[in-house]
Deep mutational scan, measured.
Amino acid sequence: SEHYTFDGEEQAIRFMRDMEAKNLKYELQIHNGKYIIQVD
């Protein structure tokens, strides 16, 4: 699995939509205002 970190919500949402379009599962965590997305 890989981790991707985003500072902004818009970037994170765009990335998650992209993952959904590719049928990839992901998990979102928010730490200290950063959006951390783990992709299986």
Rank of each mutant, 00 (worst) to 15 (best):
S1R: 13
S1N: 11
S1V: 13
S1A: 12
S1W: 14
E2P: 10
E2Q: 13
E2F: 15
E2V: 14
H3P: 09
H3W: 15
H3D: 06
H3L: 14
Y4G: 01
Y4F: 11
Y4L: 04
Y4W: 11
Y4A: 03
Y4K: 03
T5S: 10
T5V: 14
T5P: 02
F6Q: 00
F6P: 01
F6D: 00
F6M: 03
F6N: 00
D7I: 07
D7H: 07
D7T: 08
D7P: 05
D7E: 10
G8T: 15
G8P: 01
G8N: 15
G8K: 14
E9V: 11
E9K: 09
E9A: 10
E9L: 14
E10H: 05
E10D: 11
E10A: 10
E10G: 05
E10R: 05
Q11M: 10
Q11G: 07
Q11R: 05
Q11P: 07
A12L: 05
A12N: 01
A12E: 00
A12M: 05
I13K: 10
I13G: 04
I13R: 11
I13C: 10
I13Q: 11
I13D: 06
I13W: 09
R14N: 10
R14D: 10
R14H: 08
R14Y: 05
R14K: 12
F15T: 01
F15K: 02
F15P: 00
F15H: 02
F15S: 01
M16C: 08
M16L: 08
R17Q: 11
R17D: 05
R17Y: 07
R17S: 07
D18Y: 13
D18T: 08
D18W: 15
D18M: 13
M19Y: 03
M19L: 15
M19E: 02
M19K: 01
M19D: 01
E20A: 09
E20Y: 05
E20R: 06
A21M: 11
A21H: 07
A21R: 10
A21G: 08
A21E: 10
A21T: 08
K22V: 05
K22F: 07
K22S: 07
K22H: 09
K22N: 08
K22P: 02
K22E: 06
K22D: 04
N23P: 02
N23H: 10
N23Q: 10
N23D: 07
L24C: 09
L24E: 04
L24I: 14
L24T: 06
L24M: 11
K25L: 07
K25P: 08
Y26H: 03
Y26D: 00
Y26N: 01
Y26R: 00
Y26P: 05
E27L: 12
E27C: 14
E27T: 15
E27K: 13
E27P: 01
E27N: 12
L28N: 01
L28R: 01
Q29F: 14
Q29P: 00
Q29A: 09
Q29L: 13
I30G: 01
I30R: 05
I30M: 08
I30E: 04
I30C: 11
H31C: 14
H31E: 11
H31A: 11
N32M: 09
N32Y: 06
N32Q: 09
N32I: 04
G33A: 03
G33I: 01
G33P: 00
G33Q: 04
G33D: 05
K34F: 10
K34I: 11
K34V: 11
K34A: 05
K34D: 02
K34T: 08
Y35D: 00
Y35F: 10
Y35K: 00
Y35R: 00
Y35T: 01
Y35N: 00
I36M: 07
I36E: 05
I36W: 07
I36P: 00
I36L: 08
I37H: 00
I37C: 02
I37E: 00
I37F: 10
I37M: 02
I37A: 02
I37R: 00
Q38P: 01
Q38L: 14
Q38W: 15
V39E: 02
V39W: 05
V39I: 10
V39Y: 04
V39C: 03
V39Q: 03
V39H: 03
D40W: 15
D40S: 13
D40E: 13
D40N: 13
